[in-house]
Amino acid sequence: MDLHGYFRSSASYRVRIGLNLKGLQYDYCPVNLLKGEQRGNDYRKLNPQGLVPALVDGDTILTQSLAILEWLDETHPEPALLPAEPLARARARALVYNVACDIQPVQNLRVLKYLQGEYGISDEQKIGWIRHWIHEGFCALEQQLNPAPFATGEQPGLFECCLLPQIYSAERFGMDIAEYPAIHRIALACGEIPAFIEARPENQPDSTL
Rank of each mutant, 00 (worst) to 15 (best):
A178C: 09
V31G: 04
V31P: 00
I121S: 03
L209V: 10
I17L: 04
D27W: 08
P79T: 00
A54P: 08
Q204E: 04
A84Y: 01
P149W: 13
P156T: 03
S65N: 08
P156W: 03
G50Y: 03
W71Y: 15
A199K: 00
S65E: 05
D176V: 11
G117Y: 00
A94P: 01
C162Y: 05
G40S: 15
D123I: 00
E192A: 15
C161T: 11
L66M: 15
A189S: 09
R200L: 14
E154K: 13
A54W: 10
A187L: 02
S12I: 07
I130Y: 10
L33T: 04
G18M: 08
T208N: 13
I177K: 06
L66N: 11
Y43M: 04
E160R: 02
A151L: 05
T208W: 07
W129P: 10
V31C: 03
W129Q: 11
R89N: 02
I103Q: 14
R91E: 01
P105M: 11
Q49W: 06
C190F: 02
V111R: 12
R185P: 07
R200T: 09
Q204C: 12
T60E: 15
T208I: 09
R200E: 14
E85C: 00
P147G: 11
L95M: 01
P201T: 13
E142Y: 05
L188R: 15
H184I: 02
L51E: 11
E74I: 14
E171S: 04
L72A: 12
H135Y: 09
G58C: 10
